[in-house]
Write a protein that binds this DNA or RNA. Sequence first.
DNA 1: AGCCAGTCTCGGA
DNA 2: TCCGAGACTGGCT
Length: 169
Amino acid sequence: MKTNLIGLPIPTRDGEFTAHYSETGLPGLDFPKPGRNSRPKAGVIPIPKIVREWHRTTTQALKAVLAGGLPKGLPPLDWTEGTAFQQKVWKVMGKIAPGKTLSYGEIASAIGKPKASRAVGGACGANPIPVLVPCHRVLAANKKIGGFSGGMDWKYRLLEREGVRVGAV
DNA sequence: AGCCAGTCTCGGA
DNA sequence: TCCGAGACTGGCT
């Protein structure tokens, strides 16, 4: 666990996301939570300059993705807490262009384990940085929506915004 | 369309 | 270390 974990809000037209920053980058991003969330940390801990910079980048990137586009840049993603397998999966997912989708099986093949599609699904669900790591662009083999940890409606909304038509569940 | 078995990883007991 | 469960797949009924 990181010591100086800082949570900063990112207001968007879709609600207020929360970005978490460690000393080395961005380890997590939260979807807007229902109700109001308290986040006193920002006022207590002095925010390092580098974090403010990351936050600006993150905000831009997030909004770009929410608009169905490609972020100009990303902050350093700190997913060192994930297992080696998960990191491979996330890295592959990060290369999916807006408007494109891959199946769990294709991801599995991409990391050299064509039969690990189900495990890939698990890694997607464990993705701590949704949206920026486009886990929503991963569909089941027959283009079914599958599932989404942040809520199915998000997955639908994000994909539709990118012009992707998904099959019914 | 629905059910079943194969496959792989993760997390808890 | 073993066991169950999962955002999967492909095949069979």
